[in-house]
């Protein structure tokens, strides 16, 4: 029994090691705040371990991500009017176009409703297929397509044409 428990714990610690950064980045894109993101990841890992005995091998990351998304939904439900969209890492970098894109994307994410934002993050950062995004959020594939389409349209309007000179 002791050995089994130790094995389970070791498996979980290995999972934390391999997945926490990925989860933190997803959480950051959902929230725009690295502190809140890390709190959410800690909570999702805690809840994942609570269910560790019934989490199937290979599905732990998806399970933790699902909890993360639900925690974010719950955070929106309980949010106060105080803005938490700090985007504390959206500072200038090296490549001009990348910086522009990153800032545009940060602004675009901040302008989205919470559900639409979840769709965009899961679809384009986590690279989930539309059906998997729909299943994760409990919405239809059509709603996923619609949210993606709106997000992309917004970006299409906002992105400065790459390689063009300044307007005169």
């Amino acid at each position: 029994m002791v050995t089994r428990t130790t094995t389970r714990e070791a498996e979980f610690v290995a999972f934390v090691s391999s997945s926490s950064r990925y989860l933190a980045r997803t959480a950051y894109l959902l929230t725009g705040n690295s502190d809140i993101a890390n709190d959410m990841v800690q909570e999702s890992l805690t809840r994942t371990y609570a269910a560790w005995r019934r989490v199937r091998p290979g599905e732990a990351r998806a399970y933790a991500r699902r909890i993360l998304v639900n925690l974010n939904t719950d955070r929106w439900r309980r949010r106060t009017p105080t803005a938490t969209e700090l985007w504390d890492f959206a500072d200038p970098g090296n490549a001009e176009r990348t910086v522009d894109d990153r800032d545009q994307i940060a602004r675009m994410l901040a302008s989205l409703g919470p559900q639409q934002r979840r769709v965009i993050v899961l679809r384009y950062f986590d690279d989930l297929p539309e059906a998997e995004v729909a299943a994760c959020l409990g919405i239809s594939v059509g709603a996923v397509k619609s949210a993606c389409s709106r997000g992309l349209a917004s970006l299409r309007d906002d992105f400065a044409p790459a390689g063009k000179g300044d307007p005169t």
């Binding site: 934390v16 926490s20 950064r21 989860l23 933190a24 980045r25 997803t26 950051y28 894109l29 690295s34 993101a37 890390n38 990841v41 800690q42 890992l45 985007w87 890492f89 959206a90 970098g93 990348t98 894109d101 990153r102 545009q104 994307i105 940060a106 965009i120 993050v121 384009y124 950062f125 690279d127 997000g151 992309l152 970006l155 299409r156 992105f159």
Partner: peptide
Amino acid sequence: IEERLRAGLRELAEPVDARV
């Protein structure tokens, strides 16, 4: 646009370190 969105999201999240 999708390519730039994916790349931009990665750039945006790249500095985030997990503190768990």
